[in-house]
Structure formats: structure tokens, C-alpha cells
């Protein structure tokens, strides 16, 4: 087994740890750094609960090897504080059990940054990437639109 030492840039901090090349980013975030806000839901790229940002773009951290993230700028839900989208999720009751929430918020935040004036079509295209089983989709829609409008 090859163990290598890597330095990752996570939430603006340089973090060094030992990994296997076969380790996915999600596992390293959770097990090595205790950043458990990113959730495992399928480890198959299907549910979006593990979504983080890599260079500002949404990324399912179960679909990326940790080694691929070296030299990239990674943001996890723990790196997001006091953003309008987080506040909007609270105000609009956009979650119930909360398990999908970090991933959903990361995806919404990436969308807001990429397309501050996104309309329904783009919102739908982006948000199909995450599953909310409690199904607060209506409320999530209201939350994301409230931020898009106010930033547009």
C-alpha cells in the first residue's frame, strides 16, 4: 500500500495529511480532517450530499480522488459562514432532516456565484444534481431564488 503525504488547500488553510492514492476526497475530508459536513449518501455520484467546491465549481467529493485535489482550492460547507444562501435556507424552512443540506447549499452557492441572474432553466439544471428525500424542493427553490434576486 502506497501512503503519500499531501498538502491540500481547504477552506483557505493548508492542511497536510497522509493518504492512499485510492482515497476519495470525501473520505479524506471526513476521516483525516474531521470535516464531516460533507455527507456520504451513495459514494456513487448520484445524490450530491458530498458536494464541495473545487476552484469555485461544485464537485461531488465522492467522485474525486484526494490526490486530484492537490493544488486546487477546496471549499467545504465548514468554509461557508453567514452567506445569504445559508440564511435563506433557514428562513424558508428549506430542509427537514438536514442530511442533504450541506451538499445542496454548496451547489446553490456555486450556482449563485456562477450565474447570479440564473433563471428557472439553469436553476433546474443545476439542482437536479442533489437529492432531498424529505423533499423540501419547493422551499429550496424559494431560498435560492430569494438570493438570486437580491444579488441580481
Amino acid at each position: 500500500m502506497t501512503i503519500v503525504s499531501v498538502t491540500l488547500m481547504i477552506n483557505g488553510e493548508e492542511r497536510t495529511t497522509e493518504i492512499r492514492y485510492a482515497d476519495i476526497l470525501l473520505t479524506v475530508l471526513r476521516e483525516k480532517f474531521g470535516l464531516t459536513g460533507s455527507k456520504p449518501g451513495c459514494l456513487n455520484g448520484d445524490c450530491g450530499a458530498c458536494t464541495v467546491h473545487v476552484n469555485g465549481k461544485p464537485m461531488k467529493s465522492c467522485l474525486m480522488l484526494a490526490i486530484e485535489a492537490v493544488g486546487e482550492d477546496i471549499t467545504t460547507i465548514e468554509g461557508l459562514k453567514g452567506t445569504p444562501i445559508q440564511q435563506a435556507f433557514i428562513q424558508h424552512f428549506a430542509f427537514q432532516c438536514g442530511y442533504c443540506t450541506p451538499g445542496f447549499i454548496m451547489n446553490c452557492q456555486a450556482l449563485i456565484q456562477a450565474y447570479p441572474d440564473a433563471g428557472d432553466k439553469v436553476i433546474k439544471e443545476w439542482l437536479e444534481s442533489n437529492i432531498c428525500r424529505c423533499t423540501s424542493y419547493e422551499e429550496i427553490e424559494a431560498a435560492v431564488k430569494s438570493v438570486l434576486r437580491s444579488e441580481a
Binding site: G45, G48, T51, V54, K57, P58, M59, K60, L63, M64, N107, E125, W126, E128, S129, N130
Partner: peptide, 12 residues
């Protein structure tokens, strides 16, 4: 390609 997987997965 817009019909393949989903938007976030298509980043990868």
C-alpha cells in the same frame, strides 16, 4: 451531453 448524469457530475 446535457442529458448525461447531472450537472455537478458533469464537472467531473
Amino acid at each position: 451531453v446535457k442529458e448525461i448524469a447531472d450537472h455537478t457530475a458533469r464537472e467531473k
